[in-house]
Nucleic acid binder design. Structure first.
Lengths: 247, 247
DNA sequence: AAGTGGTCTAGACCACAGT
DNA sequence: CTGTGGTCTAGACCACTTC
């Protein structure tokens, strides 16, 4: 990374800066290496700190950098692929899945979820919090919404609190025969609670995976999973798991 | 939308501002309606324009707003679902697909694509540009990389230029029996050429869908599709197409 | 306490769309 | 031409981590 000034070009400075930095990352830095601080970098390239930050933001969005307040900016490892959407349909909480079940409470589902669950909007549902770890890092957090009608056997033990109840809900859910599932992926920004779980700041870019589980001709449950967009690449393997894309 | 000042709270101003604006969008604005300009809004909330812009950026990222230089900021319609990953594997360019074939040229594939195509990196491949329209808007642009070995019948007509050659490549590709496909989804930012196709500025957030097509035991083609993250929700329907999530 | 990234300000000028 | 959003500056202070 030289000390060259950014030349006057029609393309925005931060854009040019981004490509310069990107090339430098490829050629002159190792994964995990810490970059000079923002004030230093801005001075070196002869731009205001805000402009430099605009370039860094883009690079972080692309998964090239990781910035942590109070620590510094480091070169991020390549995104790892996290498997989503197995070939065979499966309920959440199958024996082999990568999720860790957390608390469960009764809530009124948010409007978009209520819409997916059917027109009985407003009635409270079980909401199970789950977290997914990969390589020792939290990569996703999920809220699974299960209507009371989907787990009729549950009330007997409903008094159980915390993750015990969450596991009970999943166990009851597995009694149903899964007929299919439907997924959507979209860009979002992390809500405060999700951000805390993912070790990010609120507003961080995330990939929101919404899954609708179908059984007995209706929607038996809806899962809203929030993946860190900076560190994850979602994989949908319709074929045998390929080592090439597993990253 | 009131004229209230943003109160002094521990949470960032732009974050609070975002929620205030978001609520206002729900209750006081219609889809397509044009908001007051940024200087006006900033004054109304008693913040600097940069701070106001930080809130608008988040809302645009979430698909709530649409900003166009020289025009103004409008309330965005809900994201529409675009179908990706059909239940049955299919080659690109199947008779019923939503893509429009464009030019075709010989290029050396970029490094990540070369890696997926196998170790014969560096050899030139056919690269077919395709575009996907929905509701009269461009939602995605794709580059399909096809090794010469996958379409041996082609050389005879290789001289044909433009979209004719693109269609010929697809036609030859269909001769192969598709054994499976593998998809990944990740967040990216639009390169200059993609941005132009998508009617966005360079750096706009996009969802990058990479598909590896498998035939004859190897990778027969790789497609890198770039979807507008602000207007699209990708749908992966493993079940019957549900009207609910189709948007 | 020192150093980092995160937020915020009050300006300025530019590029583009619609007259 | 006017009005819009997009870029950029040179500061200031805050929140957090580390020592």
């Amino acid at each position: 990374m030289g000390t060259t000034q950014v030349e006057a070009v029609p393309e925005p400075k931060y854009w040019h800066l981004k490509t310069v930095l990107s090339d430098a990352l490829d050629s002159e830095f190792e994964v995990g290496e810490i970059l000079p601080n923002e004030r230093e970098l801005a001075a070196r390239f002869g731009v205001a700190r805000a402009t430099l930050r605009q370039a860094l933001e883009q690079l972080e969005l692309e998964g090239r950098l990781q910035r942590r307040r109070g620590v510094g900016t480091t070169v991020a490892p390549p995104r790892f692929g996290v498997d989503v959407g197995p070939a065979e349909d499966s309920w959440p909480g199958a024996p082999d899945d990568a999720w860790q079940t957390g608390d469960c409470e009764d809530v009124e589902p948010p409007a978009p979820v209520a819409r997916l669950l059917g027109d009985d909007a407003g009635s409270p549902v079980h909401s199970v919090r789950r977290t997914r770890m990969t390589h020792g890092q939290p990569v996703a957090t999920e809220l699974l919404y299960v209507p009371h009608a989907s787990v009729p056997g549950l009330p007997a033990i409903e008094a159980a609190g915390g993750s015990a109840r969450g596991r009970a809900v999943l166990r009851e859910l597995h009694r149903l025969e899964l007929e299919g599932q439907e997924r959507t992926v979209e860009l979002g920004s992390a809500r405060a609670d999700d951000a805390r779980q993912l070790d990010r700041l609120p507003g961080a870019p995330v990939l929101v995976v919404t899954t609708r589980y179908l059984a007995r001709g209706t929607t038996a449950a809806v899962a809203v999973a929030t993946y860190r967009a900076d560190t994850c690449r979602l994989t949908f393997g319709d074929a045998q798991p390929g080592a090439l894309m597993a990253g």
